[in-house]
Nucleic acid binder design. Structure first.
Lengths: 222, 222
DNA sequence: CACTCATTCAAACACTACATTGAACGAAAA
DNA sequence: TTTTCGTTCAATGTAGTGTTTGAATGAGTG
């Protein structure tokens, strides 16, 4: 009878175990962008192929990811939106309770107050009015797999050469993979150095995509 | 630069690690009820005192719980509501993706459809109208530390002897520690055998307490 | 049908986590 | 001060985890 409670908690712990390794969290973060092959995941995370594969299989065993074959590649995806939500809550709690995280984040935001983030609502509003240019700093593949409406895709390395694609009179809102993705911080910092008005979107693409669904739900069933 | 992302994920993983052990999750579950001493937690979880203490210290290191002294006891509490939320999401995801969990749960709900749970909203409504009796089946200490308004406290072992405290004409709504706490299932099953109208509350006390706050927020800032 | 190559498996290693034991601490009580 | 007793610390054995290596699989491709 009380064995039931223990067994149940052990099952929950199986899931928790998946969140207990930084590399695995990184893989989940990349998977939150969309479907990816083992090879892609390995190269972007810097892990060996075999190692990546094993992590992915563990994730699949607890049902956090699904796999399907496409040609000679096996493509993995997150098993559902709730997984993104789980990661989000995990990060939120970490930010709220782990002093180390707060320090790390605030250190990266060198001029933290000057990089005030933009909320999704505000972005939608101003984007509709044509007041802002949305900048996606992720790699082209990820951009191709999905991006914010009207977003321009320029990676950090290309940024300097392609500044002419960005308007000087409008504000630039940069985003990347997630709330903690450094790329957008970097981009905003560099753009400001060049005299642009730039801010970063609070969320990354996965969070935005998730929020979009609930926005649509609101409209359909008000 | 990419070291930052790894370090950050390692920090998140520290938190995930806390969710990777069934006993620790059990401790967190008890702590979600309210403040508890090491001794209490050890006895209710069946762990040794030393072992309990060590788990608690790990939890404290990552800021998930706080400790304060009261007399000769040291009392632990969850560090915030977001921790409850994290556990909630973890369980939800597990229920949604781990086949094992679904099986276990459905096995316990022997007559699953006949034990249809009541939602918090419905309970509030009917409780206000005096249509239901609320039954708290947790141990008296937990009841004393906080319970639903108007709830009667009878544990499972006492239930048979104290049936006269329950009205036969009104419906009885039983609840206990959490959504997966078996006590309330047991209580409902036994009450029905005795001819009572009985159902169980979907949530447990921690979830109810959490939801209460947002209910209050709604009223204050509508 | 044989070949290719992305992915998985299997074995081995160092490393970390969990539970138990008994001793040590230290605040409250006597 | 001395005693008491919740709690914590330290040390140990056992089991599990993460990574690397090289071999094996097996679905596409020529």
């Amino acid at each position: 009878m009380s064995g039931f409670k223990q067994d149940l908690n052990d099952q929950f712990a199986r899931l928790g175990k998946m969140l207990s390794n930084g590399r695995r969290l990184e893989l989940l973060e990349y998977l939150a962008q969309g479907e990816r092959s083992v090879e892609q995941l390995a190269s972007v995370s810097g892990l060996s192929i075999a190692n990546t594969s094993q992590h992915l299989q563990q994730l699949r065993q607890v049902g956090l990811v699904n796999a399907r074959r496409d040609g000679k590649h096996i493509l993995y995806t997150l098993a559902g939106d709730d997984v993104v939500r789980l990661l989000e809550v995990l990060r939120t709690v970490a930010e709220g309770h782990l002093a180390e995280v707060r320090e790390m984040v605030s250190k990266v935001l060198t001029a933290r107050d000057s990089l005030e983030p933009v909320q999704a609502d505000e972005l939608l509003e101003r984007s509709r009015l044509g007041l802002v240019t949305v900048l996606d700093v992720r790699p082209p593949e990820e951009y191709a797999a999905g991006h914010l409406p009207g977003a321009i895709n320029i990676t950090l390395t290309e940024l300097e050469q392609q500044l002419d694609r960005l308007p000087v009179d409008k504000e630039v809102i940069a985003y990347c993979r997630g709330s903690y993705c450094v790329l957008s911080f970097e981009a905003v910092a560099r753009l400001r150095e060049r005299g642009f008005q730039a801010r970063r979107l609070e969320q990354g693409y996965p969070e935005w995509k998730l929020a979009e669904k609930t926005r649509n739900d609101r409209e359909v069933t008000p």
